[in-house]
């Protein structure tokens, strides 16, 4: 009877107010049967980590179009670690120069999505990572 729903936090860290992409992704994930917590624009790394903890999400999706990803992403990851949420899958979407992608992945970002990514691909990546992993290895009660 256990109902397992994938929970995703969609947040926009930093100061740019372009939330169209974030909203499109949020809607696509909802339509794929996920529970999407949408926090809106201008979130600090602390706010994102706090919301991820309170909502006990499986995935944090960050939308960044300001070019500040190399500063913001490590801060969010750090705050997630401090909150004991380092097991969540972190995805980054936005305008990310190709040379930054490997650096972000090295920091611990699972996938980076540029403009034009089919939302279907994001859905599939999340399903594979979250459900696939939880089948082989139950989530630890951190």
């Amino acid at each position: 009877m256990t109902e397992r729903k994938i929970r995703v936090l969609i947040a926009k860290p930093g100061l740019d107010g372009h939330d169209r992409g974030a909203k499109i992704v949020a809607r696509a994930l909802r339509d794929a049967g996920m529970e999407v917590i949408y926090t809106g624009i201008r979130q600090t790394p602390e706010m994102i980590a706090e919301a991820a903890l309170q909502e006990d999400v499986d995935v944090v999706g960050l939308s960044i179009l300001s070019g500040a990803h190399m500063t913001l992403v490590p801060q969010v990851l750090e705050k997630l670690r401090e909150a004991g949420m380092d097991h969540v899958l972190v995805l980054v979407g936005g305008i990310i120069p190709p040379e930054d992608v490997p650096k972000l992945r090295e920091m611990g970002v699972y996938k980076v999505y540029g403009p034009g990514t089919p939302t279907r691909q994001i859905v599939e990546d999340i399903r594979r990572a979250v459900l696939g992993e939880s089948q082989t290895q139950p989530e630890p009660m951190a």
Partner: peptide
Amino acid sequence: FTGGALLGDRI
């Protein structure tokens, strides 16, 4: 229809 939800109260 989809079982999904968009939870926006935190905004």
